[in-house]
Structure formats: C-alpha cells, structure tokens
Design a binder for these strands. Sequence first.
DNA 1: TAGCATTTCTGACTTAAGTCAAGGAAATCC
DNA 2: GGATTTCCTTGACTTAAGTCAGAAATGCTA
Lengths: 231, 231
Amino acid sequence: MITKDQKPKETLRNIPLFSELSIEQLRKISVFSKVKKFSKNDIIFNEGDTYLGLYILLKGTVKVFRVSSKGKESVVHIIKPLSTFADIPLFEGGNHPVSAVSLDETVVMLISKDSFLELIKTEPEISLKMLAGFAKRLKSLINQLENVSSKEVPGRLAKYLIEEIKSAGTYSLPEPFVKLTIPKSTIASYLGTITETLSRAFKKLQNEKIIRVSGKTVFVTDLIRLEELAR
Amino acid sequence: MITKDQKPKETLRNIPLFSELSIEQLRKISVFSKVKKFSKNDIIFNEGDTYLGLYILLKGTVKVFRVSSKGKESVVHIIKPLSTFADIPLFEGGNHPVSAVSLDETVVMLISKDSFLELIKTEPEISLKMLAGFAKRLKSLINQLENVSSKEVPGRLAKYLIEEIKSAGTYSLPEPFVKLTIPKSTIASYLGTITETLSRAFKKLQNEKIIRVSGKTVFVTDLIRLEELAR
DNA sequence: TAGCATTTCTGACTTAAGTCAAGGAAATCC
DNA sequence: GGATTTCCTTGACTTAAGTCAGAAATGCTA
C-alpha cells in the first residue's frame, strides 16, 4: 500500500498530469498534498459539500455519481488509479457537483485548490495536460450520452464489456475476458439502467452464445457479434 | 451582419475567451482567423472530417450532433453566439468527433489549431479560461446524462423549457415565455427522444395547464408545477 | 395566393425496460 | 462454519416510449 512515507515523488511521477515536472516541483507538490485512505463504501465527498481540492486516485476504485430527486443513482464515472477526480470546481468555483465513494480499499491524494492553482500558474504545461484530460472526458461523456439515448441495454452492455476487455489487455486473445470488480448495481447505473434489466441483458448475451460467465469473470466467445451489438 | 471588415477587434473583445487580451493580441488573432458564413442547414463539418481548428460562433445557431450507426441523431449541444465549438481536438488530436450544421444564417470565426495553440502558450490566461469553459461543459453534460437516464420525457422537456426561459430573461415575469427558434425535431433529439414523443409531452403539459402554446412561443402558466416536474 | 414540401400532430400498435415481489447465491461476520 | 446480510437473478405485470401510417398545419416558392 502506498503511504505518504513511501517515496511519494516516485508515485507523483507516474501521474500523467505531473509526468514532466522536475524533481523540485514534485517535491513542492508532495509538501502541500495530503494522502488519505478510505475503506470500502466510505464517502469521499457528497454532492453539495464544500470543495477542498483536486483528488488523485493512487489505489483502489472510486465511483463518481449523482442521485436524482427521486433517489435514483446515476454513475458518471468509475475512477481507476492515477486518474484525477473532483477537478471541475477548480475552474468553475462552487461546491462539489457530484458525490464520490470508494468501492475498494482506496488511497487518494488531495491537493488543495489554492495550491494547485498556484502550481498551474508557474507551470503552464500542467494546464495543457488538464485541458487534454478534460477534452478526453468530454469525448467520453458525449459517447455515454449517445449510447444511453441510441442503444438498448444489451448494446450498451456490449460496449461496456469491449471497453473493459481493452483496458484489461485481453482484447486480442482467442477468448478475451474481464473480471468484473465493481458491483453489478454500479454497472447498471453506469449504463443508465437497473440491476434487473442488466441481469437480463447478461442472460441474453449468454443465451446467444456471445459471452460465457464464470463467477465474476466474463469470457467473450464471439467477439465479432459483441462488436456488432455495440455498434 | 458581422463581417471581417466590420471592426473584428470589437467583436473579439466580446468573446469571453478573449475578453482580457490586449489590443495587440486581439490584432494578432484577427490576422490568423478567418470569418466564414453559412446558410441555414449548411454543414460546417462532419464527424470524421480532418480537424482545422477552433470555431467561435459570431451570429446564428449551430447544432452539434452525432449520428449513430442506425442513423439516429443525438444532439450534443446547441451553440449560441460568442461560444466556441470544435475545441476538443485542439488538445486531444484526431479528427472531428461530432458533426456541426447551421440552423440559421450563421457567421463563424475559424482559428487554426496551430495558431491557437501558439497563442495559448504566450497567453496562459487563455488556458484558464478554456479550462473554465470545459469545466462548465462537463457539468452540463453530466446534467444531460443524469436527465436522460433518470427523468421521463415530460420532465426533461420541463427542464429544457426552464433553461430556455432563464436564458431568454423572462423567468421572473408573471408569465414567463420563450420563443422556440430551433426545430422540434432538434429539441427532441437533444432531449434523447423523437418528435412524436416530444409532441405528446408538449400536449401533456398543455392539458395539465402548465404551459400555453401560441405558434412557436411557449408561455408558462404554472411555473411552480413546471419546476416540480423538472426536479 | 395557390400549390408543394416540410414539419408537426394524432391514433393504433408493439416493445423495451421499469416495478414489485420473491427466491437463490455469495460474501461477510461473529 | 453456520448464520445473517448483501447482492444478484427470475417471473409476472405495468408502463413509457418507440414504430408506423396517415392527417393537419405550417412554411416556402413561384
């Protein structure tokens, strides 16, 4: 487990945002950043909470979501290590627009808003990286939006599985697979549906011999048809 | 109508992105930017087209959208004057991820990618403004996403009408109103639905005496219930 | 302003997905 | 390692919204 005492500068170097900074700058960051740990299902912050600063996920998984007035949860993003989150209010002001909980034992780094804005001024290269990061997320949200409004649930699931397989690096194996580490209820809400419907979508893909499920692992037996569905 | 010959620097000053630049910098921008005009329904660029640069809408309305493999259109954004569009590939590389058409007689300013990236280096203040702009759009997309997956069509329409009324500045009138200037089909697709369903949603709000429609103008007779629906 | 074309509306029907309620399977905790 | 809680699945039912087809309304052009 990564802690504040274990070479924080080495960790910082691996964060895309900071990859091109000098040792001196990394040292500065490690001075004004705090490392925090959370257990499974801990609330990191809630929608409407006063904004403290930017988080960088060092270990674990974080669910970023919203809850509608009727209590329905919409998962906006699933954060994986070395990505930032809670970065919108840095530039927009205001409180947290979304909530975040840990899905694992997680370790995060918190950099206060003021310190980060200070840093960004002395190091304009970081702005460009943040812009690149935002651009990527805008694209991904546009994708999510298009998916939700133009594909039915089995198609959205197909697309999700393909993305997961790609990030698992098993895409080019004869039988690609992923281990689903996040709860089905979270996947459902990320795909804009509910667990029952997701369960039926999984069953449908299994019945059509497109996937094979063993425990928490999904094997793709017919990638061509899965891609067809996702398109 | 704004043309290249009519004090371009005055226009530039009104663009939020450039509001704090010096006359000298504005002059530079006006040198490497091109003003282009489009008639109603002209294609400004298509998804997949090679990326030229950042657009700023000076006059008119632009629809930014995607078309799914089955031909269904998803409207991502409706651009109003003095906003930028086609800014994602500036930082992400690649071709246009979305398409854009004019809904009106429109005038746009095109700033080439290289020139803009050059400018941003000499003027880091612009990066911060772009970051603020991106942050705002991320928030708006998160909103759209939550809406589509947690509200039914009449609720989404209610929310849309409230936003329109706010931007029309009639929100605090006894009977707020908006003139719908974009086609219903575009509104439908922006709300993640189809014209028939939108038409029924309009009828429902009218039957419940929440709105009153006269031609292309929608009057809100019961703002409280409209806000209730949008929540 | 007549006539054509596009846009919008309406009705009947179908379907995907949500709701409710229950049962089964895992994971977690003494 | 058995019991309790949490998660996931299944079935029967309801409902919102999509599809298709045609009618009405509006806008545009000659």
